[in-house]
């Protein structure tokens, strides 16, 4: 009886671990091309409009961007960075932003990883340093 319970428990935990691992692996793989479009049409456009100074991916190193993205702080720490890739945010601007409209249904985590993939790839020391445009 105990052995059977143990087998089922092990199988269950194995399944759970498998699912979580698959999720983590999947989450780590971003679509840099989609990230590029979102970065250019949402992040850059907003920065241009509100601050006049967009931030180019190649203005920071991979380490800088990784730390920044992990910290999840935007506007000098006053708000969450992830808010700006959330479905709620996209819904709020989709009437005037085609990228937000097109990617309205992309899961938050996935879109965040897409943008992250573009930023790390485009970093100063990344595989393909990228400017704002």
């Amino acid at each position: 009886m105990n052995a059977k319970l143990s087998t089922i428990g092990t199988l269950s935990l194995g399944l759970l671990a498998c699912g979580l691992l698959m999720s983590a692996a999947h989450g780590a793989e971003g679509d840099w091309k989609r990230g590029r479009v979102y970065y250019q049409r949402v992040c850059t456009d907003c920065h241009k409009a509100k601050t006049g100074a967009p931030v180019a991916p190649n203005s920071r190193t991979i380490a800088d961007w990784t730390a920044y993205l992990n910290a999840d702080k935007h506007a000098k720490g006053t708000e969450s960075l992830k808010k700006y890739v959330s479905k709620e945010y996209r819904a709020s601007i989709k009437a005037s932003n085609k990228a937000a409209e097109k990617y309205a249904d992309v899961p938050d985590e996935q879109l965040f990883n897409d943008v992250k993939a573009f930023m790390l790839k485009g970093a100063k020391d990344g595989d393909s340093p990228a400017s704002c445009s």
Partner: peptide, 14 residues
């Protein structure tokens, strides 16, 4: 437990 694990694995799977 099994169903929970199964649901979780499906939920988090790609």
């Amino acid at each position: 437990i099994f169903m929970l694990a199964l649901a979780a694995s499906i939920l988090f799977a790609p």
